[in-house]
Write a protein that binds this DNA or RNA. Structure first.
Lengths: 186, 186
DNA sequence: TCCAATTTGTAGCACTTGCTACATTTTCCT
DNA sequence: AGGAAAATGTAGCAAGTGCTACAAATTGGA
């Protein structure tokens, strides 16, 4: 295996580690153990700890993009209410729940100004917004853009609510969101 | 000054420090400097670093409660749309913006499972939910409860969106939220 | 005034952090 | 086979972490 292949391999293992444990165990030595190499070698494959984390989070973001694409293909357009239902459902789906939990932690870390989280969070958010906006039906361009931002905020908010209260309360909030009506989107 | 008074004084200084710098500079020595005492004395006034942080965050939460009470007194009832407008406005108001930013960081830290943030975040969220619910007009008890959870999620989501994109985008989302219609709340 | 309790400073411990210097082994090309 | 380059292990550094042992100073009550 070349250095690049080992880097890719380590990235995959790190991604799995992050999805399983979140961002609470991300010291260099912990990451190295998760990747199955020595800390010395981890810094041989990656420029720094931040580089390793960015690589792993990037890989996860890429995989998520694929999952989202499969869930709602580009061609399919949904009105806002259904989009809220679909996306808030993703938070609770077993196969994507870990993604969203990690995503929330990443934004959380970004809130504290830590790199590389800030950069990564920004990139993923932009990707999300484009994904939502391109699948919204009805309304004009401006309304879709604003609605996409609104829906992303709702999703993130649901994840946060689940963290600081409980799953049931977040479920109530999600259900209530589905009852909302969106004037301007016939 | 007695030990208790000094503890109270340190709490006030710590609260100011947290509001100004967020949660990124919370090592024992940094907190001690902010409180104007030695780290040795900080641990004399408080049982531990976590105790000091909990005390400061608690004080801030208490102050926020007062501010919210002043903004919308208990007697005044608002329909959901206006409540969303009022609360999302609080995020952008200069005198409460720092509160909400710190609040988001606290939930963020709670997301990583760190104490005392988890406990504090839960307490503040419950307080928030009660505050919103008790000021909602229309609908039945169950709908108000669900709507309060929804609105808290929206507010948190807006704060996160502002962190990982920009202020303008969050503003768009907030404005869009105000256009929503809430069936069941005549 | 004297003694005990409270308060405070000095110094440091044991540990974790990200990262690196250095030496050695392995690989690969000619 | 030989030599350069790549790969890897060993060991450790300097800084920072929360916290504490110990002794000195200060205070307040009798």
């Amino acid at each position: 295996m070349s250095k690049l292949e080992k880097r890719a391999d380590a990235t995959r293992r790190l991604a799995a580690h992050l999805l399983k444990t979140g961002l609470s165990q991300t010291s260099l030595r912990q990451l190295a153990t998760a990747a199955g190499v020595s800390d010395r070698m981890l810094l041989y494959y990656f420029d720094s700890k931040a580089d390793a984390l960015a690589s792993a989070l990037g890989a996860i973001a890429g995989e998520l993009t694929g999952t989202l694409e499969a869930a709602i293909p580009e061609g399919r357009k949904l009105p806002p209410a259904e989009m809220i239902k679909a996306t808030s459902g993703l938070i609770r789906a077993p196969e994507t729940k870990a993604f969203f939990y990690l995503w929330t932690e990443t934004v959380a870390a970004a809130a504290r100004g830590e790199e590389p989280y800030r950069t990564i969070a920004n990139a993923i958010a932009e990707g999300f917004l484009i994904w939502i906006e391109s699948r919204l039906s009805g309304g004009d361009t401006k309304a879709r853009r604003a609605t996409a931002a609104m829906i992303l905020a709702m999703i993130d908010g649901l994840a946060l609510l689940e963290i600081c209260t409980d799953e049931k309360r977040a479920g109530m909030a999600a259900k209530q969101m589905e009852t909302l009506e969106h004037p301007g989107f016939d």
